[in-house]
Design a protein around this nucleic acid. Structure first.
Length: 623
RNA sequence: GGCCCUGUAGCUCAAUUUGGCAGAGCAAGCGACUCUUAAUCGUUAGGUUGAAGGUUCGAGUCCUUCCAGGGUCACCA
């Protein structure tokens, strides 16, 4: 499915010339004495220590050529490995005629990987370089990467000229994005550091990392639609997990004090700048603490991760300074509504009266008649009107019960003295979510461990969301059975790791912290339509086929370009005349003579199709 | 799924408003240059303007449909 562009044809040609010279382009074994940054560091140290007596530092470096400035008899290149870049100083005198010729004739290109042996030096212009005595091609790049030039200012600041920023191409060809865009590479280094920091933190808290099934016979633990798949041998439908919750809490029954899991969740929902169909989730459950204990851990964990990854608990996200240092602001959802929207929703204790009040205040836009009371408060008031204001880390606690089937009811301190306050306690749970930069980052509860209450909640959820079959949490009998054996009181936590990475790397879109964000199959490009391309390196003969999968196909065309060793076969929906333009374009593209075979006869393409007989056709096509 | 925006050379972008020869920089080919560094100088080539259809003497530009991406709403902690 690959047809070379003109630039790629040039490189294929260079590859052939290298083969003709007997150059091995893809050796199995290479040498490297230093990473590039190490070699530069060694030279810097040597310069500082012994400014007079210069012992030559012999190095053998490997890397990708990112800049190549060929001159008559002395050339310069930059090579780059993961640690950094260094300049190569390549001179005819040092390399010898044969090796230097590869550079001067640019048989070695930008983007190729090379191995360079030589002595560390500083050029007259002051740049640390390698005076190369031996240069060896170790991997030839047949497709050129997008060109981004760099200028390193005296202050060390790097200015880039030219960019590779088309997001679709960057996501689809992430390798090219990474190879070219240094800042993208850095994001994924920080992502790895974030995950390591979270793991280190939880380990140091004495929690046990576990792994639970991704394929589950029954999904649960969140309100989301699952992906369904099928096990052929067992004749059983399986769901990809939407959360880890129910499996992890079973482990507390089993006797572990505290467990956590970091892994992939799958939700069959739309994608957006903060949703991907699969995403990395972190959940932990710890015995003998309640949600206040979880709040403390949450604050310390995020502060720790920020410190490890960015070096500070003060970060900047999209121009906003954010301070992650504990303690964070904490308020109940009731207080949040009071302070942001100016009323007490407990004055409207059922769905009807709350709906009427919101309409009266002009806050009802987007509300559905079917919404439950709690859902209006959590998703509408909090989600639509308050969430985006929560820039500094904020814990919002005490959620309505009908939105929180796994959270323990609010454990009031002093017994409430009015009917309103009694009702408040009855209808709310010990659950909190926390928000940073206007984004919901995670969710936690004092976990429900009373099997009878849990059963009631399953039933209650089923009743409340009867209209929306997709959103009911299925009744997990085995989970209830487990709970009946006794589950220690515990606090649980879940957060989207990708969103934390967005925060710590200052990325607006979740797609920029995922190496391979979910995309549709690419639109069939011009090249794809031209079909399958096969490279036969030995004879440098190209053959590609076109298969227009169009209805009403009449003609099957074959097209040969013996001058370039290219053969094409394809079908066309249109009559022969309709193909002329495309064929002539193809001829322009690849050069040479076109020979066309159709159901109706054989032709040579001049300005018109010139009819041929079969024998002539094959002979002139050189086949 | 609805609405809005985008798709032009390998990359980054012009030309779209008001239909009239599809252009530039970088990258590439060839030539010159033994301390360059966004090297420079000369020169050459490079396009099915995402795809298909329509209107028109003439379409990158206007219309229809489709594809992909982004945004937004819906869905969804």
């Amino acid at each position: 499915m690959w047809q070379p562009s003109k630039l790629e044809l040039e490189r294929l040609d260079k590859a052939q010339r290298l083969r003709d010279k007997g150059v091995e382009m893809y050796p199995a074994r290479v040498c490297r004495s230093h990473r590039i940054a190490e070699a530069v560091e060694a030279f810097t140290v040597m310069e500082a220590d012994s400014p007079d007596a210069r012992d030559p530092i012999q190095v053998t470096l490997t890397g990708r050529i990112r800049r190549l400035n060929t001159k008559g008899k002395a050339s310069f290149a930059h090579i780059e490995d993961e640690s950094g870049r260094v300049q190569l100083f390549l001179r005819l005198n040092s390399l010898g005629e044969a090796a230097y010729e590869l550079v001067r004739r640019k048989l070695i290109d930008v983007d190729d990987f090379v191995q360079a042996r030589g002595v560390m030096m500083r050029t007259r212009a002051g740049e640390i370089s390698v005076a190369v005595e031996g240069l060896r091609l170790i991997s030839k790049a047949l497709s050129p990467l997008p060109v981004v030039k760099e200028q390193r200012r005296d202050d060390g600041h790097v200015v880039e000229y030219g960019e590779f920023k088309d997001v679709e191409t960057r996501y689809r060809r992430r390798y090219a994005d990474l190879a070219v865009n240094r800042s993208v590479r850095e994001v994924f280094v920080k992502r790895a550091r974030t995950i390591k920091a979270l793991r280190d933190f939880l380990d140091s808290e004495g929690m046990l990392e576990v792994e639970t099934p991704i394929l589950q016979p029954l999904y649960g633990g969140a309100a989301a639609r699952p992906f369904v798949t099928h096990h052929n041998q067992l004749h059983q439908d399986l769901y990809l997990r939407i959360s880890f919750e129910l499996y992890l809490k079973r482990l507390l029954v089993g006797g572990y004090d505290a467990v956590y899991e970091m892994g992939r969740d799958f939700r069959n929902e739309g994608v957006s700048y903060k949703h991907n169909t699969e995403f990395t989730m972190l959940e932990f459950y710890k015995s003998y603490i309640d949600y206040a204990g979880v709040m403390d851990i949450t604050e310390r964990m995020f502060a720790y991760a920020a410190l490890e990854v960015t070096g500070s608990t003060n970060i900047v996200y999209q121009g906003q300074a954010i301070d992650l240092k504990p303690p964070w602001k904490r308020l109940s959802i009731r207080e949040a509504v009071q302070s942001f929207l100016g009323f007490d929703y407990m004055d409207y204790p059922d769905a009807e009266s709350l709906y009427a009040h919101l309409r009266a205040r002009g806050l009802a836009e987007g509300l559905k008649q079917s919404d439950t009371w709690g859902r209006m408060i959590v998703e509408h008031l909090l989600g639509d009107h308050i969430e985006k204001e929560l820039i500094q880390p904020t814990i919002i606690r005490d959620y309505p019960r009908d939105m929180s089937p796994f959270a323990k009811r609010l454990q009031g301190g002093a017994s409430p003295d009015t009917a309103k306050e009694r009702r408040y306690v009855e209808t709310h749970t010990e659950r909190f979510e926390f928000f940073i930069a206007g984004m919901e980052m995670g969710n936690a509860f004092t976990e429900l461990n009373d099997p009878r209450d849990q059963q009631d909640r399953f039933v209650e959820m089923k009743r409340l969301y009867a209209d929306e079959a997709d959103e009911t949490t299925p009744l997990d009998q085995d989970y209830l059975i487990a709970m009946r054996y006794g589950m220690p009181p515990n606090g649980g936590f879940g957060c989207g790791v990708d969103r934390l990475v967005m925060l710590l790397t200052d990325q607006v879109s979740i797609r920029d912290v995922l190496l391979y964000p979910h995309l549709r199959l690419p639109a069939p490009t011009d090249r794809d339509l031209r079909g399958q391309f096969m490279l036969e390196a030995a004879v440098r003969e190209c053959e590609y086929r076109l298969d227009y999968a169009l209805e009403g196909t009449k003609h099957r065309l074959a097209l040969y370009l013996p001058a370039r060793g290219i053969g094409v076969e394809f079908r066309l929906a249109n009559a022969l005349d309709g193909a002329r333009r495309q064929l002539q374009h193809l001829r322009k593209l690849v050069g040479g003579q076109l020979y066309v075979m159709t159901d109706e006869g054989f032709y040579r393409v001049e300005d018109e199709f010139v009819e041929m007989d079969l024998a002539d056709f094959w002979r002139t096509a050189g086949m």
